[in-house]
């Protein structure tokens, strides 16, 4: 129960951070997505089932609060949560470098679904998808990977120092 509450707190914090602080640290209009990072970490640690439900609820919350198409974020995050959960720690041991690569894939997967849903809903051209992936998704995933790297650096090097 405490784990569930902890993750709920993490997701609420991430939603608040995403809509407030993240805009302030954007570089050339690229903003890291901490909600995807949090979902990725949850799915890696707790598996597909937790990942897909958390992704669905997190996505639905974002859909309700942001002026996007209802169900777009929910669908993208559900699938990302479920897919990332396949690489969870109970199934395979992954080192931080591999995890960062997985995060990159998760971002591309997430944005692809998001954009496909958007293209279908708005009947736009599919060429928009490739352009968005290159100009938006890749830089955002790299920025987010940097954040994940800092998080790992903190948990591997700084946090043990404080524990001692």
């Amino acid at each position: 129960m405490s784990t569930v509450l902890k993750w709920i707190a993490v997701f609420i914090s991430c939603l608040v951070l995403q809509s407030t602080l993240m805009n302030a640290v954007s570089i050339l209009g690229i903003t890291p997505d901490v909600t995807v990072i949090a979902l990725f970490l949850l799915a890696i640690n707790h598996g597909s089932l937790a990942g897909l439900y958390a992704g669905f609820l997190l996505g639905l919350s974002q859909d309700l609060y942001s002026p996007s198409i209802l169900g777009q974020q929910a669908l993208a995050k559900t699938l990302v949560g479920a897919a990332t959960g396949l690489f969870n720690v109970k199934v395979m041991r992954t080192d931080p470098l591999l995890r960062m690569f997985l995060l990159l894939l998760a971002f591309i997967f997430h944005d692809s679904i998001f954009l496909i849903a958007s293209v279908i809903k708005n009947s736009s051209s599919l060429s928009l998808l490739g352009k968005e992936l290159i100009t938006e998704t890749i830089p955002r995933s790299l920025y987010s990977m940097l954040l994940l790297l800092l998080l790992y650096a903190w948990s591997y090097f700084v946090a043990p120092f404080f524990k001692k």
Binding site: G47, S48, L49, L52, Y53, G55, F56, G59, D63, I69, L70, G71, Q72, A74, L75, T78, L79, A82, A117, I120, K121
Partner: peptide, 25 residues
């Protein structure tokens, strides 16, 4: 197959929401 069923359910729900018109959404 609870994971698969859950995935199916959430995806169907998301798609159902997506398929609604803007007013309904």
């Amino acid at each position: 197959h609870h994971t698969l069923s859950s995935l199916f359910l959430t995806v169907i729900l998301s798609l159902w929401m997506l398929s609604r018109s803007l007013d309904q959404q």
